[in-house]
Structures are given as structure tokens and as C-alpha cells.
Design a protein around this nucleic acid. Structure first.
Length: 887
RNA sequence: GGACUCUUAGCUCAGUUGGCUAGAGCGUUUCUUUGACGUAGAAAAGGUCAGAGGUUCGAGUCCUCUAGAGUCCACCA
């Protein structure tokens, strides 16, 4: 294969991916069961497109997987697809609406199969995109969140919990979206501070209860509320027991406005004497606080708002059927006309919204299934406190423990058809067919049964009807590490626990917390050894991406434009764990440039290898490792640099510092390998070394830029097989003295270049002069290289009569052979150089004059400082001497 | 109200147990039509590390406070 002048990713990527997949590199062999390195992908929504967060997830996870694969671990990366219960449901419901249909036209079972088809149609799309990002995952093991084994595992857990008494049926207030007509967990509700009003309503004290003998007793009480329309459900008015204003009316009754009901005045700490009027109406069926108050005082829970947000008939003909908003207006109008509306105050308060449609959440009284989370949470906390899971960033461990300590019971019922049916059946009031016997009183109200395909079942002569609700998706998702690894009670799984769970920091509570609780509950072991949480990917201005703002960056369009590797490099660059950070196309562009650079490096080396080939001198190249020897300047140095790159990538990957790893690869390839080593090799062309070092670089870079490195591997004339299956390089041999010598040679070249640039700036007609060197073995031994790298027209010894400008480098005797005029004009820059060295010297001297430093600092530091002072002093005196000469 | 995070170059961020002259990318300026790459090469400018105090021989790094930014949790009628 021939190298084109620039790397064109779209010509290679899909072929390479297919070749990898078809050759089975993504799947660990069955017999290799000893040392697995396993990661499961947080399942992207089956019916959706990947967003930038998935792009980041795959870049992170796949680089870990590829790194470990090259290191020789049996890696196992499981892709997934999420039925995404509610998310998908919203999309589907919208599609139905567009066709002029409503979900209420269909039965639950009909809806379920419709959505199944809908998702099936869309699913391939997501999988193609995961492939395009280069994810080296085991497709045969793809798990869909509604797969048979997932459902059966979820049912098993539910049954265990039911038997353990962790599950209870409760009538409680739940967060309810009147638009979607389903309940949510607390975590799915968004609290937003909004302006609103606090109205003062006049509740008259019922006349028959007024103590006529005591005229000091007021005949009404003012209650403050933000939701006047709920007054129909009021069951009491609460005042603080310590509030002197109301002490003597506790226990009396008030007339509920617009109705003919009377409700008591009760004492409760919940009433804050400093807020509003200090008296608060209690609506147990429609407010979380009031619910609690109601429980304390055994109040009725009267529902006055329907599931879809309309007033119920109990509110009276005038209000029944109105939306809550309409009803509020009407109530306020009526109260006003009756003189019962006393005041209105602007306030800001937190209002709960549906996280999907933004509709105001209506706390609604519902019978639902709840998980008693107390034992689950404390189990999780005890393992977390033993540091059985390492967190990146570490701070999230504390955050998670704090969350678990305050965890409330978990409502797992959802009133949407798209999801896993809850396997619970309720005893029917009807007498079961045939027997004619009465229902036995001792038969349970609810029974667990997995025959969810049936609407009703019969057990011991009793008829039971299926609960129509489905599970909260997080209930099944919390089993993800268990189900993906096929963990069983009998055999466990060689992949469980996972090595790493990598996901977004935003679902630490919703998902990670629940996986830990469930993993421990089901298997007794934590589900993963490490957690890496990435932050949000923000737009280039640091703003959250959103469709409405129009600042969404689509990963696929970046892949199409710059290539998959460029995207991966761009998204990993400068990103650290847990932080929400800006991302721009610019970083992808620089990733693309690196790919092209590496491509051209390889192109050059390959052309040298090809040029050297003569028909009769066909080399026999030992694979897998090219043997090499170092002869020339820079060769030991590049071996040292690659060796240190290798070690630092190992270290960074171990501590999940992806960005640092990428940065080091970038600078080694570009600044070291291309700009110094290859430039030097233009003189020497040590082919075995060039080949060996290029191979190492390709392997080390492969986890981060898999496609271009493989494309190069395939294009090189001497390599065979696949790069993905190569093994991580062993340590390179090098002579450290020779490496250090090249470092000093670089300094000479840089200084010559810098001087030339400065002098050129002073005089546009300046031409790069020849180089002279005195008694300087480093320069004489590297003369050709220095000459070539600095583009000087020539280099020669001074023969004892130095002239021109001497380089200000310690221990060097190198001159630029320039004319007298140029020498004189250089004086100024020399003076400023002396000043800056002087400042550094002062700093070092200050340290040494401090007796405590000399006494307490480590000896090697003190010695270094002493050495530094000596060198700087020598340099200054020499520079001063040069200044004398220039005069 | 509670918890957590952040503040380092024009921008986005590194800086691991305190230790040599605080780094990178992008951007900016100057130079280079050298046959791997202009998606390039060479060079340069740019930082009182938010502020104050403390610990220390030594603080971007540890502690306290202040100011600012952000995120999450929470029932404020």
C-alpha cells in the first residue's frame, strides 16, 4: 500500500474496523479465563443517536481496553443498548401524537409491542455509530436492557426483596407528571427557583365554636399559600404550638372557604411563625410536607386533582374539570368577591418540574411499590467506607456516601407501558370462576408471579389481576454489571466484578449508587473495582449544550469531518475526571493534525526503507521485534525518550490520567521524534532503529488513535499482522551518557537558531553565518549535525583565533562568524542576558544564606543549589568578558 | 438550608507525596516557497498562580478566613 501525502481517515476507518471485528480481536477466547480486564458500556439509548457524552465515554473506555489488550490482558468490553423506558416513551408518544393518535386508544400490551418494533427499527443506527468511534467491543455479547436474561434477573431480585421484606406497597405522595401521567423518583425531578405569589386567605372560625364570652378571640385566621386551588383538599390549618398569636384557638374549627366543610386548627412544628402569617393550610393529598403533617395528626387524605391535572368533582360543579391553573384563577376571583382574599406577595420559591417536558410536578397520592432502602444503603456505605471501590475523582466517594446516608425509600412504579412489567398480582374482589367458593380471607392481597404476559391468573382458587405498572428503568439498570457478565449464584462470573465503571458524573446517584447497592445485595461483592466519572462536555464557551440553545455538537459529524482518531484525541485532551469542561472543534482539528503528522513520519521512514532496498539485498527482518543498534547522535536519546513515554503512559493509565497520556504522546511524536530525531536521521538513516522506534510509537499511541496507527501498520512495507494484536513494547536499551550528550547538542542548535532569529530581526539583510568552534569536543564530534540542524552554510574550528559572537552556553565554545557591525549591535541583548542570569543567581544565593535551608533541606537539593550558584557565577563572568571583547 | 467543586498565560486546562527558571494546546507576533507533512518548520512575546493571613528552610501545592464562579441535594407553605 502506498502512502498518500496526507492521511485521509474516511478511506481506512470502516475497512479497518471490519477487519478487526472479523478477525475476532474484540472477543477474548473462551479458554482464556484467567485474567480478564472487563468494562461494560453504559448502554446508549437504543433508538437514539449518540451524543457527545457517549463519544467521550467510548474514547475513555476504549483507550483503557486497547491499552490493556496490548499489555496482554484478556480484555472484554461489552456493548449495550438501553430501552430507556421513559426517554423512549416520550419520543414514541410524540410520534403517536403527530399521527393524530393518543396512547389512551391502545391497551398496554399493544403499546408495548408497538414500541418494541419502533426501537427495533432504530437500533442499528446507534450500533453503527459506536463502531464508527472505534469501540473495540465484543458485539456477540451485546446486551439489551429488555433481553430475557435481564428481565429474569430483575424478577429474581425483586422476588428476593419481596421475600426479604424490602418491598412494600404504599399509598404515598409521589412526584407525578400530569402530562405523561406517570410517577417519578425524587431524582428525576428538577427543582427550579421561580417567581410566584404567596396569597393570604381568610379562613373564618366556625361561628358555633366561637367563644361568645371571650371577645379577644379572633373570628378568623389568615393562612398563606402559593396554591389556593388546593384548598378543597384542606384537612386542617396548622399553627406553631409555640406561637402566642394562635395559642388560644388551637383545637377550634374553621370554615373552609368556597365549601361547606369545617376543618380543625392543629398545632404542628411544621408551621413557621416567621413565614407569612404563621398559619398554614394542610392539604395531605397534594403536598409532601402536608402529607407528613397529616400522618402525624391522622388526617384524611382527600384527593381533589386528577391524574391528568384536572379538578375532581368533589370540588363542586363550579370547579370540577378545570385545570389547576384555571381553577386557581377562579378560586382567587371567588375569594376576592367574598372578601376572603386579604393579600398577595411576590416571592421566589422552588418549583418541581418534570425533567423531560418541564410540566410542573403535581404531588399526587398513589399506591405504588416502594423499596425500603435503609438496609441496602447501609450495606453499600459499609463497603464504600472500606474503600473497596476507588473513585476518580476521589471526592465523589464522599458525595456518594453522603447521598446514601440520606436516601429515602425508592418508588419503583412507573405508569408507562414501555418497560419491564412489575410481576405482582392483586387479589380480585370477584369470586374466581368455577368454584363458586368465597375468596379465602387469609389469601394475600398481593402475590409475586412472573406470568406477566397474563392479565390475570388464578392461584389456589383465587383470581389475581396484574399490576399494570412497569419498573423504574433504574431498577433494572442497577443490575447492569450483573446481567452483562452473566453472573449466576452458582458460578459467579469471570468478568465480575468489573475492573472499571466509567460513566457520567451526573448519574452518580441515579445509576452508580444503585448498581453498588444492587451488586452487593445480589452477589455480595461490589460490582466494580473503580469508578471513573466524566463531567459534562460543554460547548466552547463553557455553556451546557442543549437543543434549544442550538449549541449541540454532534460527534458523528466531527468523525466524518476529521476522522475518528481526531475526535478521540480532541475530546480526551485537557479533560480531567469529574469536571465539566468546554469542548471545541479546534481540539479535534489539532488531533487531526497529529494523525497527519504521524502518517507523514511513517511515510518518510517507509520511503527510506524502500529506497534502501535493492533487489539483491532483500533484508530478512526479524519479527515481531526489529533489532537495532545505536551509532549516531540522537539515537540513544530517542530510545530514552520513548522509554520514558512508555513508562509515563503506563503510569497515567493506571491512575486514569488520560489527558496527560495523550499530551505526552503528542509531544513525543511531534516535538521529539519528528522535530529532532527524524531531522537528525536525515543525515544517518539508521534503518533498523527507525523501524523499531516507529513500531514502539505506533503501539503506544494505538489506544488513543487506533485507526491511523493501524492504517500505518498496514501500509508499512516491513510490518505484518495487525497492530491491535501486537504487544506492548519492552524497555529500550540506551546509553544515558550519549542521550544526555544529545540533549546538550540540542541546546547548542537552539541557541544558534535563536541568535540567528534575533539578528535577522535587527537586520533584514542578515544571512545565516558559518559556525566556528574552539576547544569543544561536544561540538566537534557533532559538527555535521549541528550544521545541518541549524542550517548554517558551514562549520569549522577557530584554529585559535576566535571571532564573531560567542554563544552564551556554559562549557561551550561556539561562535557565529558574523561581521563587526553585527557583533556591536548584539551588545544590548547580551547585557539583558547578564541581568536575567543575575536575578536567578540572586535567588539561589538567598536560599544558601538561609542557615535553616542548609540545615533542613535534603542534602541533594542543597548540593544542587551550590552547584547552580557556581555555574551561574561562571557564566556571568564569562558573559562580562565577552562584553569587554565586543567593546 | 446542606454538601461538593473550581479560581494558574488572551482562551481551554495540566501542575500526583510541598523542592531547580510554573507547563501544554489553541490564539498572537516575526521569520522560512529546505522534495515526509504549510494539517509544516524555526523563533518570540505573554503569568505578583483570585485576595489576606498562617504552617514551613521552602507554598500554585497544606491550614484558616474573605471574595467570586459553578454543580448537586433539600419539603420552604
Amino acid at each position: 500500500m502506498k502512502f498518500t501525502p496526507s492521511y485521509e481517515p474516511d478511506k481506512f476507518e470502516s475497512d479497518i474496523y471490519n477487519a478487526w471485528e472479523q478477525n475476532g480481536f474484540f472477543r477474548p477466547k473462551a479458554e482464556d479465563s484467567e485474567k480478564f480486564y472487563s468494562i461494560v458500556m453504559p448502554p446508549p439509548n437504543a433508538n437514539g443517536n449518540l451524543h457527545i457524552g457517549h463519544g467521550l465515554t467510548i474514547a475513555l473506555e476504549d483507550s483503557l481496553i486497547r491499552f490493556h489488550r496490548l499489555r496482554g490482558d484478556k480484555t472484554w468490553y461489552v456493548p449495550g443498548a438501553d430501552h430507556a423506558g421513559f426517554e423512549t416513551w416520550v419520543v414514541y408518544e410524540r410520534a403517536l401524537e403527530k399521527l393524530g393518535h393518543s396512547r389512551f386508544e391502545y391497551s398496554r400490551d399493544e403499546l408495548y409491542s408497538q414500541v418494541w418494533d419502533f426501537v427495533e427499527e432504530q437500533r442499528g443506527n446507534m450500533e453503527l455509530q459506536v463502531r464508527a468511534l472505534g469501540a473495540s467491543c465484543s458485539w456477540e455479547d451485546l446486551t439489551f436492557t429488555l433481553d430475557e436474561n435481564v428481565v429474569s434477573r430483575v424478577y429474581k431480585t425483586f422476588e428476593k426483596m419481596w421475600n426479604d421484606g424490602f418491598i412494600y406497597r404504599g399509598e404515598k405522595l409521589v412526584n407525578y407528571c400530569p402530562k405523561h401521567e406517570t410517577a417519578f423518583a425524587d431524582i428525576e425531578v428538577e427543582h427550579i427557583d421561580e417567581p410566584g405569589f404567596l396569597w393570604d386567605l381568610k379562613y373564618e372560625i366556625a361561628p358555633e365554636n366561637t367563644d361568645s364570652k371571650n371577645s379577644s378571640t379572633p373570628d378568623f385566621i389568615v393562612v398563606s399559600t402559593t396554591r389556593p386551588e388546593t384548598l378543597f383538599g384542606d384537612e386542617a390549618v396548622a399553627v406553631n404550638p409555640n406561637d402566642p398569636r394562635y395559642k388560644n384557638i388551637i383545637g377550634k374549627k374553621v370554615k373552609l372557604p368556597l365549601t361547606d366543610r369545617e376543618i380543625p386548627i392543629i398545632p404542628d412544628e411544621h408551621a413557621d411563625p416567621t413565614y407569612g402569617s404563621g398559619a398554614v393550610k394542610i392539604t395531605p393529598a397534594h403536598d409532601f410536607d402536608d402529607f407528613e403533617v397529616g400522618e402525624r395528626h391522622s388526617l384524611e387524605k382527600l384527593r381533589v386533582i386528577s391524574d391528568n391535572g384536572h379538578m375532581l368533582p368533589i370540588c363542586g360543579e363550579r370547579y370540577s374539570g378545570l385545570t389547576t391553573e384555571e381553577c386557581r384563577k377562579q378560586v382567587l376571583k371567588d375569594l376576592k368577591s367574598e372578601g376572603l382574599l386579604l393579600g398577595k406577595k411576590k416571592i421566589t420559591h422552588a418549583v418541581a418540574h418534570c425533567y423531560k417536558c418541564g410540566t410542573v410536578i403535581e404531588p399526587t397520592l398513589k399506591e405504588q411499590w416502594f423499596i425500603d432502602t435503609e438496609k441496602l444503603a447501609s450495606l453499600a456505605i459499609s463497603h464504600l467506607e472500606k474503600n473497596e471501590i476507588s473513585f476518580h475523582p476521589a471526592s465523589k466517594q464522599k458525595v456518594l456516601i453522603n447521598y446514601l446516608k440520606n436516601l429515602k425509600d425508592w418508588n419503583i412504579s412507573r405508569q408507562i407501558p414501555w418497560g419491564i412489567p412489575i410481576p405482582m398480582f392483586k387479589k380480585s374482589a370477584e369470586i374466581s370462576s368455577g368454584t363458586g367458593e368465597e375468596v379465602k380471607n387469609d389469601s394475600p392481597d398481593w402475590i409475586f408471579d412472573t406470568r406477566v404476559e397474563l392479565k390475570e391468573i388464578e392461584v389456589a382458587g383465587v383470581k389475581y389481576i396484574r399490576d399494570e405498572d412497569t419498573f423504574d428503568t433504574w431498577f433494572s439498570s442497577s443490575h447492569w454489571p450483573i446481567v452483562c457478565t452473566d453472573w449466576t449464584e452458582a458460578h459467579g462470573s469471570p468478568f465480575y466484578p468489573l475492573n472499571v465503571m466509567e460513566t457520567g458524573a451526573d448519574i452518580l446517584f441515579a445509576w452508580v449508587a444503585r448498581m453498588i447497592m444492587m451488586g452487593l445485595y445480589v452477589t455480595g461483592e461490589v460490582p466494580f473495582k473503580s469508578v471513573y466519572l466524566h463531567g459534562l462536555v460543554l460547548d466552547e464557551h463553557g455553556k451546557k449544550m442543549s437543543k434549544s440553545k442550538g449549541n449541540v455538537i454532534n460527534p458523528m459529524s466531527l468523525v466524518a469531518k476529521y476522522g475518528s482518531d481526531a475526535f478521540r484525541l480532541g475530546i480526551l485532551r485537557g479533560r480531567s475526571a469529574g469536571m465539566s469542561q468546554a469542548f471545541s472543534e479546534q481540539s479535534v482539528l489539532s488531533g487531526r493534525n497529529l494523525c497527519n503528522k504521524l502518517w507523514n513520519i511513517s511515510r518518510l521512514i517507509d520511503s527510506w526503507v524502500e529506497d534502501a532496498k535493492t533487489p539483491d539485498a532483500e533484508e530478512t527482518i526479524p519479527r515481531p521485534k526489529t533489532a537495532y543498534t545505536t551509532f549516531n547522535p540522537g539515537e540513544d536519546w530517542i530510545c530514552r525518550e520513548i522509554d520514558s513515554l512508555k513508562k509515563s503512559v503506563e503510569k497515567n493509565m493506571k491512575s486514569y490520567r488520560f489527558s496527560e497520556a495523550v499530551e505526552e504522546i503528542y509531544s513525543t511524536i511531534w516535538d521529539k521524534y519528528a522535530d529532532w530525531f527524524l531531522e537528525s536521521q536525515k543525515l544517518y538513516k539508521n534503518l533498523p532503529l527507525l523501524k523499531a522506534t516507529l513500531e514502539d510509537i505506533l503501539i503506544i499511541a494505538h489506544p488513543f488513535m487506533p485507526f491511523v496507527t493501524e492504517a500505518i501498520w498496514q501500509a508499512l512495507s516491513w510490518t505484518d499482522g495487525f497492530l491491535i494484536a501486537e504487544s506492548w513494547p519492552s524497555s529500550l536499551d540506551f546509553d544515558p551518557i550519549s542521550a544526555e550528550e544529545f540533549e546538550r547538542t540540542k541546546l547548542v542548535v537552539s541557541e544558534i537558531r535563536r541568535l540567528n532569529t534575533v539578528l535577522k530581526a535587527q537586520n533584514p539583510h542578515y544571512k545565516i553565518p558559518p559556525i566556528l568552534f574552539g576547544d569543544d569536543s561536544l561540538v566537534s564530534e557533532n559538527a555535521d549535525l549541528i550544521c545541518a540542524l541549524s542550517k548554517a552554510p558551514g562549520i569549522s574550528p577557530t584554529d585559535g583565533s576566535p571571532r564573531g559572537i560567542r554563544l552564551a552556553l556554559e562549557g561551550r565554545e561556539v561562535y557565529l562568524d558574523v561581521d563587526e557591525k553585527t557583533v556591536a549591535s548584539h551588545r544590548e541583548s547580551l547585557e539583558s542576558h547578564i541581568l536575567s542570569i543575575g536575578r536567578e543567581l540572586d535567588a539561589l544565593n538567598a536560599r544558601m544564606t538561609n542557615p535553616n535551608y542548609v540545615k533542613k533541606a535534603p542534602a541533594h537539593l542543597v548540593e544542587e543549589t551550590r552547584q547552580g550558584i557556581k555555574e551561574k557565577e561562571a557564566l556571568i563572568s564569562r558573559l562580562k568578558l565577552e562584553l569587554e571583547v565586543i567593546k
